[in-house]
Simulated scan of single mutants.
Amino acid sequence: NMLISGTKEKAEADRQIADLRIKTPTRNALASSLSGGNQQKIVIGKWLAHGAKLFIFDEPTVGVDVGTKAEIYRLFSTLLSKGAGIILISSYLPEVYELA
Rank of each mutant, 00 (worst) to 15 (best):
N1D: 15
M2V: 12
L3P: 02
I4A: 01
S5W: 10
K8C: 02
E9M: 13
K10I: 14
A11L: 06
A11Q: 07
D14C: 01
R15I: 11
A18P: 03
A18Y: 04
A18T: 15
L20P: 01
R21S: 00
P25V: 06
P25Y: 13
N28S: 14
A29L: 06
A31T: 09
A31Y: 00
L34D: 03
S35F: 13
S35N: 08
S35T: 15
S35L: 14
N38G: 04
Q39V: 14
K41F: 06
V43R: 14
I44G: 02
G45L: 05
W47Q: 15
A49N: 04
H50Q: 14
H50S: 12
G51T: 12
A52F: 14
K53Y: 05
K53V: 15
I56P: 00
I56G: 04
D58P: 10
P60S: 15
V62S: 05
G63E: 15
G63K: 06
D65Q: 03
V66D: 00
V66T: 13
V66G: 01
G67A: 10
T68V: 14
K69E: 04
K69L: 10
A70T: 13
A70R: 05
I72S: 00
Y73S: 10
Y73G: 05
R74W: 02
L75A: 03
L75S: 02
S77Y: 05
S77R: 09
L79Y: 04
L80I: 13
S81N: 14
K82P: 00
K82F: 01
I86Q: 03
I86K: 08
I87L: 11
I87K: 01
L88P: 12
I89Y: 00
I89M: 05
S91V: 10
Y92T: 05
E95R: 08
Y97G: 00
E98M: 10
A100M: 08
A100N: 03
A100H: 00
